[in-house]
Structures are given as C-alpha cells and as structure tokens.
C-alpha cells in the first residue's frame, strides 16, 4: 500500500478551479518534488493535504495510509502523520514557542496512544533539535515566529517537523528566501529526517534545493495539472530551459 494516493483531485478556491485533476502516488521512503510556475497550484495542493477547509475539493480522492484524508480535520491529519512546512509561516504573538510545540507534540502522542511528555523531558529534546538546525536558544522563550526573520521562520518549520516526526512531510518552498548557509542547514535538517518510513513532498521553484535534497521523482505542475513527471534530471532540465516549453506543450492539443 502506498503512503499517499491522490486520484483525480479537483479543487476550487474562492469559486475558481485551481487543481484540475491531480494523480500522484507516493510511497514511504520516497522524496518527490513538485515544481511549476507561480500560481500553478502547488501551495493549493499542499494546503489541501494539510486539510485547509477553505480549499474545496469538488472531485477525486486522497488516501493517506489507506485512510480517507479528505474526511480528516487538520488536527486529525496532523495526528495521522501529515506535516506541512508553510510557505509563509504564521506569527502568533502571545503563544510561546515551547508551549506551542509541546502542546502539539502531546496532542499527537495522545492520539497515538503514547504518554504525554512533561516539560522536563521536552526541553532537552527541544534544545537538541535547535542545535540540529543551528538555531539560537533564545527562540525557546519567544512567541511562535514572532519577530523571526524569514530564514528563522523557515528553519522553525523544519524544527517543528523534526520534533513532530511526521510520516509525510510537505515542504512548501522552504528554500525560498534562504541564503546558501541557511539552505544547507535546512537541507541537512531535512535529510537527517529521511527514512524508509517517511515520505516527503518538496515544493520548490529552484533546482538549488534539489542539489542537497535529491528527489526520487520530479513532477511539473502547470495550471492545475501535472504535465510531466520524471527523475531528478527533469529538475535540471527545467533549470536550464524554464517552464515555457512545458507550458507550450501542455497547451498544445492533446496528441496522446
């Protein structure tokens, strides 16, 4: 059984059809990358996987670990093992990072029938993961993402992923806005989480990230459809030639 099976997914946002029939299967242990021009629907797909209710699924099916993902609320999807690293992480003043992450971890642990973790056990683990992402200890006492730089926010997403240990991690442009050092740190954080039980879906515009996180498959999303899939070499080709040729091909009358 595949970890994630998306079949003929159609999604409307604010009355417009954004995803127009997506088919995608991801097995545990695999890393897939989704590339595509601005506005093609990459984030929409990511948000639907995280179960954002404003994104209305009009047709199709998503099975996660054999279960109907579309029946799940966001928190249930998270507890089942879906994690989205946001393209634009949200600042939440007044809620401490530590409190937030421990609440999240305990909600998930509870769902999985594990014992809740108290502050004494949580903090050392938190510090260790901070070190992994070369983040400052002082972030422990700050509010969620509040006053974080763009790069810190992105690292914080990966930090959360490292703590919550999802089965499927969806990274939405985690590389955007990172300088090369931060990119390296984030990528090594991500790579340290690669395992045979965990799959990743990496949304990016740039080949750059894929030098560090080498995907098993690359898919190109244009105007709500996956118009081409291939191996890592496809990303290089896109880097070289841009999306124009693929878009033109996609628009051409179907000759299959």
């Amino acid at each position: 059984m595949s970890l994630l099976e998306i079949k003929n997914l159609h999604v409307n946002v604010a009355g417009h059809e954004i995803l127009k029939g997506i088919d995608l299967t991801i097995n545990a242990g695999e890393v897939h990358s989704i590339m595509g021009p601005n506005g093609s629907g990459k984030s929409t797909l990511a948000q639907v996987l995280a179960r954002r209710e404003a994104y209305q699924v009009t047709d199709g099916q998503i099975l996660f670990d054999g279960k109907d993902l579309l029946e799940m609320k966001p928190e249930v999807a998270a507890c089942e093992g879906v994690f989205l690293a946001f393209q634009y992480p949200v600042e939440i003043p007044g809620i401490g990072n530590t409190y937030f992450l421990r609440s999240a971890l305990n909600a998930i642990r509870k769902y999985r029938g594990l014992e809740e973790m108290d502050a004494m056990d949580f903090l050392p683990m938190f510090r260790e993961k901070l070190k992994l992402l070369e983040m400052d200890d002082k972030l422990i006492n700050r509010s969620v993402n509040e006053g974080f730089s763009g790069g810190e926010k992105k690292r914080n997403e990966i930090l959360q992923m490292a703590i919550l240990e999802p089965k499927l991690a969806v990274l939405d442009e985690t590389d955007s806005g990172l300088d090369i050092d931060a990119l390296r740190i984030v990528a090594s954080g991500v790579n340290s989480l690669r395992s045979k039980d965990r799959a990743m879906l990496v949304v990016t515009h740039y080949q750059r990230l894929l030098n560090y996180i080498v995907p098993d498959f690359v898919h190109v999303l244009v105007d709500g459809r996956i118009v081409r899939s291939g191996g890592p070499e496809l990303a290089l080709e896109l880097e070289d030639k841009g999306y124009g040729w693929i878009e033109a091909e996609a628009k051409a009358p179907a000759s299959v």
């Binding site: 609320k73 999807a77 507890c79 994690f83 949200v90 939440i92 999240a104 909600a107 998930i108 959360q160």
Partner: peptide, 13 residues
C-alpha cells in the same frame, strides 16, 4: 491563518 497553523500541528480546534 493562526487557527489553521495551530491545528495543522495537531492541536484540536
């Protein structure tokens, strides 16, 4: 946005 962010990490509504 903030509500969804929290929920997406497993915290119930």
């Amino acid at each position: 946005n903030a509500l969804f962010y929290l929920r997406s990490r497993g915290i119930d509504e």
